[in-house]
Structures are given as structure tokens and as C-alpha cells.
């Protein structure tokens, strides 16, 4: 875990909590745009968007983490990540900054009401604790 201390992360927030994803996993961050809903899929899959001619699915982290859905605001963003050669968008309430962590702790069983397996670790930052997402688990969650 020490080796990762120099790694850069994008820190973003949902409700009062802060989360992070390694910067090299992120393709780009875009504003909320028109989402075409897909019927009969898992509820946290919100639909698909047109990302410059590509059809990209978007998921709601709020929904996945069991929080109430909220209206998208001016600060809402879609974090587009690369996962298994495919782009997937994650809707978040706000994107804070690029950051590094001086220390990363293994995740506890539960992180603020969210199961611990969604995280690779908990990063310690000046602003507080940040949950570092384990993308495999977040995206493949059944």
C-alpha cells in the first residue's frame, strides 16, 4: 500500500462522502448530458449516452451505494472510466480535485453504510477519509 502513495487520484463526492479513482483509469470527465433510459435493466444502470459517436452506458453511484436519487445539479458530472476495453460513465454529485494520499488503510467491513468490498482502501487526506473505489467490484456488482 505504501507504493501507491505517489499515485494520483481524482477525488469526487456523493452526498457528504468523498471517493476517489486512480487517474489512469479515468478516460474523461463530462457534464451531465441527455441519458437514454434502457428498460428492464438493473436500477443503478441509468441508461446510455452518446460520447462523440460512441454509445456509453452510465451508472449512478448514488443508487449503487443505496442513497436516495437526487436531481442532477450544476456540479453533477459523469466520470468516464475505461474498464475492460469499454467506456462506462459513473454519475457523481461533484468532482473535487486531483489528489495523492500520504497513507492508505485497508478498508473496514463497511464504509459509511456501503459494503467494504467496493473499496481497495481508505485514503487519508487533509479533508478527511476518502474511499478509493475498486472498479472491478463497482462495475460488476450484481
Amino acid at each position: 500500500m505504501q507504493a501507491s502513495s505517489q499515485e494520483q487520484y481524482i477525488e469526487f463526492g456523493i452526498e457528504q462522502e468523498q471517493y476517489a479513482i486512480r487517474i489512469q483509469d479515468i478516460h474523461e470527465i463530462i457534464k451531465i448530458q441527455e441519458i437514454t433510459a434502457i428498460p428492464n435493466v438493473t436500477d443503478y444502470v441509468k441508461g446510455v449516452i452518446n460520447l462523440r459517436g460512441r454509445i456509453v452506458p452510465v451508472i449512478s453511484l448514488r443508487c449503487l451505494f443505496g442513497s436516495e436519487e437526487a436531481e442532477y445539479t450544476k456540479s453533477s458530472r459523469i466520470v468516464v472510466i475505461h474498464h475492460l476495453e469499454e467506456a462506462v460513465g459513473i454519475i457523481v454529485d461533484r468532482v473535487n480535485k486531483v489528489t495523492t494520499f500520504t497513507d492508505i488503510q485497508p478498508p473496514p467491513e463497511r464504509v459509511g453504510g456501503v459494503q467494504g468490498s467496493f473499496f481497495t482502501g481508505i485514503g487519508l487526506a487533509e479533508s478527511g477519509l476518502v474511499g478509493i473505489l475498486r472498479l472491478d467490484e463497482v462495475l460488476l456488482h450484481e
Partner: peptide, 27 residues
């Protein structure tokens, strides 16, 4: 016809998506 990708996978009743003239995605 564009596939919705393996992340979404097979959805019964939906063959895929396409991008319309206004840039939106239609199923």
C-alpha cells in the same frame, strides 16, 4: 446499429442503439 456494449449486455426487447441526427441515443 450499435451495440450497447458488454457492460449492459443482452436486454430482452432491445437489439441495440443508434445515434440520431440530434445527437441523442435511440434504442
Amino acid at each position: 446499429i450499435k451495440s450497447l456494449g458488454s457492460y449492459i449486455g443482452k436486454v430482452t426487447g432491445i437489439a441495440g442503439g443508434t445515434i440520431l441526427g440530434d445527437g441523442s441515443v435511440a434504442l
